[in-house]
Structures are given as C-alpha cells and as structure tokens.
Design a protein around this nucleic acid. Structure first.
Length: 431
DNA sequence: TCTGGGGTCCTAGGACCC
DNA sequence: TCTGGGGTCCTAGGACCC
C-alpha cells in the first residue's frame, strides 16, 4: 500500500499558521513578481478565483471581497515543508518527497504493525501533522501511487470522508474510479483528456478499462501503459530511490521574470550572472557539479510580437564544475552569443544539467591542482557565510551594485510576510 | 502598465562506431 | 547487381506534474 499525504492549499496554510485571523477568510498567495495566483484558500476558490489567474485581472474581485493577498515567501514555505516531511519520515518506513507540499509513503509490511488499520494510521498521521505544524492535510491510501493520488483527491473533495480515503477493496477502488473525471487522473493533461473524450472515455473507470495497446499508442507509450495498469491496481512504480526522501535532482534551474522589460545588455548580463550564482549555490548544496549549462532569455508572449518567445544556448563544459566564477564566466559567453539588440526581454534563466557528484571528474581525469583546491575551499566559505548571515552577504565583486541601488531586474513583492521561522529578526514576538 | 517557476520522462531521428 | 545489425550519444520536441 502507498499513501499520498498532500497539504491543503499549502502556501495559504503557511501564512495562516502565523496569522490565525485569516482562518475562514478568502486568502490568496501570488507568484514571483506578484504575477498570478498560485495558492487559494477554499473561500477564495468559492469566489471563482482560478489557479494561475493574473493578479491585475482579478484585482477588482479581490478588493470587492476583501481577499487577503500575499506575495510568495519561499523561505517560509520551504521551512514549513521540511517540518512536515521530517515528521512523515519518522512514522513511515520510506518517504518520497514528491513536491514542496506532497509526499508518498511506502506502507508495505506496515499492516502487521499498525494496530487497527491503515485507515486509522492515516488519520493519526493527519492529526499529528496538524498538531505539530499547523498545516492541514489530506491522505489517500491505495495499492498503487496513481490510485493513492486519486484517493487523495476524493478525500479533499469529499468532506464527509474526514480527510482520509482508503481504497482497500476492489469495490472501493471501482467506486473511486467512477467518481473521478478522466482529466483529473494523475498523468492525464489537456491533450490526452481531449483525445479520450473523443473516443468516449470520460472517467477514471473508463480509462482503467481501456486496452494496453490503446494506452501505449495514444497516451505517451510506456508511460500510458503504466498509468492504466496502476489504475487497475497493479503497482508499476515504487518510491523514487533516495537516501533521505529528498529527490536527487537531475537538473536544476534558476529563472525569473524581470520587474520590467530590459533592453540593455549590461542589465541582462547582471541578471544572468546573479541567477547563475544562485544556481551554483543550489548545485553545491546538493553536492553536485554540472557538465551542461543552458542560458535562455524570453520575450513577452502576450504582446503583438510573433514567436519564438524564447531562445537558448547550451554550453558543454569539459570538466563538470560547481564553481560560481567559472559558471558565471560561461553564462556570460552564452548570453553574448544569444544577444540580439533592440529586444524587450522580460525573463531570463539558467539551467544546470549533466549533474554528477562534485570532485568525481577531477579525480578521474585531472589531479586537482592547488588552484582548484583553493577555489573549492573559497566556495565552501562563501556558502557558509551566506547561510549564516543571509543570502547575498558575500558575492562576486562583478555582481555588486552601487550602494542603495536595486537591480533593474528585481521584481515586485509588495505583500511579503516576514521569514518567521528562518530569520532571527523575523521571529514572531508574543507578548 | 501589470500574465510564475521548477521539474520529469519519453520518442524520434541523425551521427557515429564496431 | 548486391546495401546488416546493433549500440551509444546527442538534439529537438512533446507531454505531463506541482
């Protein structure tokens, strides 16, 4: 059996933990740059607000209903997520952290140790996560990950279930499959849903009844075949392997929409350098080095200009590295090759791929010379200082701006709450 | 004026190698 | 005239996820 634990309206719930007066009121959290809605409380959903709605379009509605609006605060959400995940890892034999607000638990063999049933176990987990972190969750329990996802959805949509849905028998499974529209199945997006409707398949039950050959041909090859089998109750995927439940990333990316469109090369170079520096920090935190570096710049998709809206260049590095100086140098080379004058660029980003454990390449091919050793030590010290005194305390001289000046690419975050749990200065005071 | 950010996996085709 | 079989690596593109 697998369980999927999913936090309800996670970002909104995080804000509510520190401002209980928001309980029962409509609340939304905005994406970076205060661009669009990425988390909504149930009250906000009831007003018709959709995931991804552009803020400026729904602003009148938000004001009319006095919806509480927040800029996203990832330092807070990341920390709350760690607390939830840490608890889950204490109670389940194996955990896969699927996203910031979801985790799969592998419950195989647990039936023997759980006194009553997995249903009771799920209810206990749910109550304890709430008591320890203040975050409400729903839990789906089923024989496959895909069915656990589906069960979780039912738990969420159906208040009578009390936040837990356990599909322990074939009858329950069949009942569940009939409740869920095919487009709401994990792995069925817009394109596949459309295809399925055309041939008359509209529910998860219908999808579970389709042939493997059909799935293979029309739903993405082996992926589709696996999906159908999982709906039928045959597990085709276990938990992703990892040491501590944290997914080992195969690539990582740092990208941002600028606060305003930029046309000057020095401005965009500044952005790309800063983004590369952040990406390099992530890379080192993961203990990896990268072989491939991609830089991309994008233009607005919403204006009159025709596509393409984005262009990119991939550089292949002879030796994998996690060195900020080296990566920033390469990123600048890439940007120079990409650059076209007189464009209004709205976004840029850096992706690092071809990851391998740091130090591996140097050991196998080259002796690590005194220079590279020095550099590695320097990077470690830089990371430590930034961890201790806050992001950006120490950075490359080339990334520095004149005192009092903010970067031209910096975005909006008008309604950001304090970092209650990760910054001493922001600690909540109770008097 | 203002429309997010970060991932995964799979397939197909071409180049190249033995 | 006849024109194999397999493997790997790379790129581009498509679909999906939260």
């Amino acid at each position: 059996m697998y369980a999927l634990v999913d936090c309800n309206n996670f970002y909104v719930s995080c804000e509510r933990v520190f401002q209980p007066r928001l309980e029962g009121r409509p609340v939304v959290v905005l994406s970076n740059n205060d661009g669009c809605l990425i988390s909504r409380s149930n009250e906000a959903k009831a007003l018709g607000l959709q995931m991804g709605d552009p803020y400026f379009q729904v602003k009148p509605l938000l004001e009319q209903h006095q919806v509480a609006v927040f800029s996203s605060n990832y330092a807070l959400y990341g920390d709350m997520s760690r607390r939830v995940m840490w608890y889950l890892s204490q109670v389940a034999p194996a955990v896969e952290i699927y996203s910031i607000d979801e985790a799969f638990l592998d419950l195989h063999g647990m039936e023997r140790f759980v006194v009553r049933s997995l249903d009771t176990f799920a209810r206990t987990v749910r109550a304890n996560v709430l008591a320890r972190t203040g975050i409400p969750t729903c839990v789906g329990v089923a024989p496959t990950k895909t069915l656990a996802k589906l069960a979780n959805r039912l738990a969420k949509k159906n208040p009578a279930l009390g936040g837990v849905c356990y599909l322990d028998t074939d009858e329950r499974r069949q009942w569940a499959l009939e409740q869920v529209a095919v487009e709401d199945v994990w792995g069925i997006g817009r394109q596949y849903a459309q295809k399925l409707y055309v041939v008359g398949i509209t529910t998860a039950a219908g999808l579970a009844g389709c042939s493997e050959a059909y799935a293979r041909q029309h739903l993405g090859g082996v992926v589709g075949a696996r999906l159908v089998r999982e709906l039928q109750g045959y597990p085709c995927q276990g938990l992703a392997p990892s040491e501590d439940g944290t997914l080992a990333r195969r690539s990582l990316c740092y990208s941002r929409t600028f606060g305003q469109p930029l046309s000057a090369f020095p401005d965009v170079v500044g952005a790309v350098s800063a983004f590369t520096s952040r990406a390099a920090e992530k890379l080192r935190r993961q203990g990896d080095a990268a072989h491939l570096l991609t830089v991309f710049v994008s233009k607005s998709r919403y204006g009159l200009e025709p596509p393409p809206y984005s262009s990119s260049i991939v550089l292949s590095l002879p030796v994998a590295t996690s060195d900020t100086v080296e990566l920033v140098r390469m990123a600048r080379v890439a940007l120079k090759r990409l650059w076209q004058p007189r464009q209004r660029y709205t976004k840029a980003g850096v992706t690092l791929e071809g990851l391998e454990p740091a130090g591996q390449a140097q050991l196998s091919l080259f002796e690590p010379g005194p220079e590279s050793e020095k550099r590695t030590k320097l990077m470690a010290e830089l990371d430590q200082l930034n961890r201790r005194f806050g992001k950006g305390t120490v950075q490359l001289a080339a990334l520095l701006l004149p005192v009092g000046q903010s970067a031209p690419w910096q975005g909006q975050a008008q309604w950001r709450t304090p970092q209650y749990t990760t910054r001493l200065e922001d600690l909540l005071l109770v008097s």
